[in-house]
Nucleic acid binder design. Structure first.
Lengths: 225, 225
DNA sequence: TTCTAAATGATAGTATTACTATCTCATAGA
DNA sequence: TCTATGAGATAGTAATACTATCATTTAGAA
């Protein structure tokens, strides 16, 4: 049995759907690689075009600009994460167990469990850690939000918030706690690797410590009393 | 009695010290205003030069590039925050009380208490909320870190971590919790205003709710037991 | 088989950005 | 009066972020 996960993306994310053509799939695959290698700031459509052997104009047929492409990549990541969470918490009764699994999925490197073809999920995870917040920290957040570009993030947050409420229906900040877990899973990872003084994980570079920190944070917060 | 706070900045942050000349002070004051108005992405030295009636080359005498200027601004903000925290927690014995004050200082708009001359602290706070993480989310974090450009942030984090340890000497993640408070004070504010679905603060736009959330988060985490 | 539309390639051009270089001028202090 | 410093003026360059146009391939419909 060979299964492939296909994620349906919001039409406003692109000018032409990159999933439906060869060049489109190349753009996604290789933009992720290039951003991973040199960072989003130094990433240009010209470099990408040279990298995959096409022209700048060719890329512009798919994406308005590089920021839209980043939003696309992030939206894909969030959708994929939500799917993985559904998959890995399915049939689990205990909401605390569910939440543990979620924290684990957010904070540890991807064990490439669910195949998605033209995307390297491990590299993608690294990109989102380093570039993820740039997706919405812009002057046009609100327009982008109206265009539903962040829906996958909001859905993910809502889903985690739901599980938090299952753990403790009286907890007052399920969504804020959910967004805190998501952001901190990424930020503490970034800090651990690049600004270790901002963490207690030292030079160990061990993601399990981040999981332990987040579990402590979350479970003491939602504990009843 | 007229007092003015002067913050000593790391020499590597600039090419020429902007505090020591008229143009320099104008650059700081007006760059903050311009970034506030249109965001860091659309901010250029050319626009800044026109805005303050000088030339592009003039600005480049003070700062290597606009990112260095942003780091300068952020470093100033972090130093200033640490000073305010010292000021407002001074002579308080109860560490829990101290921590409450710190959360309040981080998460609510500035009551312009300590004058600093050529900087508008309220606008500065807004900028850091929206642009703060761009300061270190780059490919050159590590070099910048070696140049001690983030020392004010690390000092701030260490100071808050200290207070956390005073509250509970056995708490295992004082620095990670400190960086979490700092980042979330900013992010939850940004989310509240621009992506409210990621928070539980709805359309109220009331910073006190962020304070309540952070207090709940922090105090349940460091509670002994 | 022919026709057509969609995808891609090839080339060119523009405005803006991100700088660097150089020369002049004012002025404050020694 | 000399001189260093700050700052204005001007010029120029490489890269970035696009837009426009035209030609070619190819797969499916008529």
């Amino acid at each position: 049995m060979e299964l492939q996960l296909q994620i349906k993306m919001n039409e406003k994310l692109f000018l032409r759907n990159p999933e439906l053509s060869e060049l489109g799939k190349k753009i996604i695959l290789h933009s992720i690689q290039l951003i991973y290698k040199s960072g989003f700031e130094s990433f240009t459509f010209k470099k990408l075009a040279e990298y995959i052997g096409t022209t700048e104009a060719g890329i512009y047929r798919y994406f308005e600009n590089k920021h839209r492409l980043l939003i696309y990549i992030a939206a894909w990541y969030w959708s994929w994460l939500e799917y993985r969470i559904s998959f890995h918490t399915n049939n689990i009764k205990d909401p605390l167990r569910k939440l543990k699994n979620i924290i684990h999925l957010l904070a540890t490197p991807v064990e490439d469990d669910i195949k998605t073809g033209h995307v390297n999920e491990n590299i993608l995870h690294e990109i989102i850690i380093a570039e993820g917040s740039k997706v919405y920290l812009t002057r046009h957040v609100s327009e982008d939000n109206s265009d539903q570009l962040f829906k996958p993030y909001k859905d993910l947050c809502a889903k985690i918030g739901q599980v938090i409420l299952e753990c403790n229906p009286k907890y007052k900040y399920p969504k804020s706690l959910a967004s805190t877990i998501i952001e901190m899973a990424h930020f503490q990872n970034f800090f651990m690797h690049h600004l270790p003084a901002l963490t207690d994980f030292g030079k160990h570079k061990d993601e399990k410590k981040i999981v332990a920190f987040l579990e402590d944070l979350v479970f003491s917060s939602i504990k009843k009393g």
